[in-house]
């Protein structure tokens, strides 16, 4: 579903990502791990084109996407979250969710006047969808609150729920379990598994090995911007190179 070949990006003299390869199969939960500074988040930014790559190709859903704008990639059905959860503080949790909905008639300036009925109708439908998703992540009671009033863990949940509102094919999660208490981590994992069963594909950066090992079908290991290994979680756990990279 998503494939990247020969991706490279340098910041000055630093080769943050160097000739990296990555494949995400449809319907899978794929993990991306590596020591700090390995270039995982940079790779995410290259995949979603928040940062332009120097070299390489990215193919999503059979089409090359490295020349597209970030919002166009999101519209194609590949949505990302951020390492430090970014919520729209002075909008309500519900408004954060509604923003995620794609192809909204009312987001066109003229349609606000030309098709007011359809705008209201869609808004009602999206609101129901948003309520259902919020319910499933346990944030329904916060719908009316400012998103800025949420705790760190709740923000992670909101960000995931908001990504889901876009009805994506592939979600890129950047450290969904970082800074989240163990109970909430379990809850987040449950959600990911449930959504995966419903047909959503995931690519996850994570440092929490329990999360990676329990969730992922396949794991890619990055170190110093280069591919180190890839395989099933069990294979990776046995891989001497990986252990060395992590333990030093």
């Amino acid at each position: 579903m998503l494939a990247a070949y020969g991706l490279g990006k340098s910041f000055g003299g630093l080769r943050a990502v160097d000739d990296a390869k990555l494949e995400v199969a449809q319907g899978s939960i794929t993990g991306l791990i590596g020591p700090n500074g390995a270039g995982k988040t940079t790779l995410f930014n290259l995949l979603s084109n928040f940062i332009r790559s120097d070299r390489g190709r990215v193919i999503f859903d059979g089409e090359p996407i490295q020349h597209l704008q970030p919002h166009q990639i999101a519209q194609m059905g590949m949505v990302r979250t951020f390492q430090v959860a970014r919520v729209l503080s002075r909008l309500s949790v519900m408004e954060n969710m509604l923003l995620g909905a794609q192809k909204q008639t009312g987001e066109n300036f003229w349609n606000v006047w030309l098709q007011p009925k359809q705008v209201i109708e869609e808004e009602k439908q999206q609101r129901e969808r948003a309520e259902a998703i919020l319910e499933s992540v346990g944030l329904a009671h916060m719908a009316g609150a400012y998103a800025g009033a949420l705790s760190g863990g709740q923000r992670k949940l909101l960000e995931m729920a908001r990504a889901l509102m876009t009805d994506p094919k592939l979600i890129l999660l950047d450290e969904p379990a970082a800074g989240v208490n163990p109970t909430l981590i379990n809850q987040i994992c449950d959600r990911i598994v449930t959504w995966n069963r419903e047909g959503m594909t995931f690519l996850i950066i994570e440092h929490n090995m329990d999360v990676i090992m329990s969730l992922c079908d396949r794991v890619w290991v990055l170190a110093e911007g280069r591919n180190l290994a890839d395989g099933t979680p069990a294979e990776i756990q046995q891989n001497a190179q990986v252990l060395e990279a992590y333990l030093g």
Binding site: Q72, Q75, G100, V119
Partner: peptide, 26 residues
């Protein structure tokens, strides 16, 4: 306009335009 979905996108840009981009808004 401020209460419309169009206005919501503007407010989202005010808050954090990277998020708006990540959610497919031009």
């Amino acid at each position: 306009l401020a209460r419309s979905p169009w206005g919501r996108v503007l407010k989202a840009i005010r808050e954090d335009e990277e998020v708006a981009k990540a959610l497919g808004k031009n």
